[in-house]
Design a protein around this nucleic acid. Structure first.
Lengths: 202, 202
DNA sequence: ATGTTATCTTGACAGTGTCAACATAGCACT
DNA sequence: AGTGCTATGTTGACACTGTCAAGATAACAT
């Protein structure tokens, strides 16, 4: 383990990710500098470069962990009941809780830092897309597909409804047009919105 | 005007904003450094500090311009007809076009750079909130308020539908789960979603 | 003409990511 | 045990960033 005074750290790779997660949660991406991270791990500035090709790569790995957790949340989702509303409501709350529990992680996962400025790792792209695909499949398979009005693609519903969720999180976390105390009401409204797309004129 | 060789620039304030907008559009926020900006304006590194207290202040001013343009788009919106669908569709397309025309500007307006990391100017907050309030009022006044099912607050509809639009833009611009070529189809789906909230079971 | 103020300059500092060159340790093989 | 290979860690350096302090210059009011 992390024996102080040793030349070789032992498991720097894991230690870096661990410390990075803490630093991210506490200070945000802006506060997460490689140098500070290295210092925290008790190691020199450039040591991390032997475990991650780049700062970008490290951030991608961090985001990847997040997507894996989100994917687990996706697995638990269940829209199979005759009335999909309770399941959907549970899912929406879960998603919002996920984002609010660790806003900086959510920001990293979906923010431009990785997807626009830096370039996402192939591995990250795979996990992130897998997460979304699971959502589409769930919508399709869990009976909702059958309820869809003719000509409506499950993919489109998935995209639009995820956009709603995502937009809600962004507005909420950045504190632009949605307040923390509006959360519950707006979340219900979002559920109503999404439900309307699924259950057209019932 | 911008006479080269003069000690005083003439109208540096405006020139900075102008150049900053160009730099933002071409390189994004990451490429917009005060030093580079100053160089472009033919002035020393610290000259901008006599016109903007901060880099943050300059970015806020830039975002403010964006919100003013968005507000103009909001003015043009019209949901008054018996069937609000065409107006809504026009509005959604306009919004998406606005975001796609200058993605970096949109990112700046709604991104965390200003709202989370830096602190938004009071002036920026005012304009941004005014823009949203106009949307709520439009929804309320343009007959949609009357169509709303009992107990549904126009504010909630505004928040949820804006979230949908915003989320769509983010996913689109960052290229996560929505592609440029999906845009039209997803935008239609979003319209259907928003419409469903407004016209409950017709 | 004089003084006040707005504007612009250079110099400096701490911080960043990352490359190059070098040091050390562990591990495999003889 | 010795010998080399490779993984890992180190210091030094570079270009870049935002921002402060101190000084120079011009405009403008008196």
């Amino acid at each position: 383990m992390t024996q102080p005074g040793r030349y070789h750290h032992g498991d720097l790779h894991a230690a870096l990710l661990r410390e990075a997660a803490v630093l991210l949660r506490e200070q945000g991406v802006e506060g997460l500098s490689l140098r500070r991270l290295a210092e925290r791990a008790g190691v020199s500035r450039t040591a991390p470069y032997h475990h991650f090709t780049d700062k970008n790569a490290l951030l991608c790995a961090l985001a990847e962990d997040g997507f894996r957790r989100l994917d687990r949340l996706m697995e638990e989702a269940d829209f199979r009941a005759d009335d999909p509303e309770p399941g959907l409501r549970r899912f929406v709350r879960g998603y919002l809780r996920f984002a609010c529990d660790d806003p900086e992680q959510y920001e990293l996962m979906f923010g431009r830092t990785l997807w626009k400025t830096g370039r996402p790792t192939e591995s990250l792209t795979r996990v992130a897309h897998g997460c979304f695909r699971r959502y589409v499949d769930k919508l399709q398979a869990d009976g909702i597909g059958a309820h869809l009005p003719g000509g409506t693609d499950a993919l489109r519903v998935a995209q639009a409804s995820w956009a709603t969720l995502h937009g809600l999180c962004r507005l909420l976390l950045d504190g632009i047009y949605v307040d923390r105390q509006d959360m519950e009401a707006v979340s219900d409204q979002a559920v109503a919105l999404m439900l309307a797309a699924v259950r057209p004129a019932q």
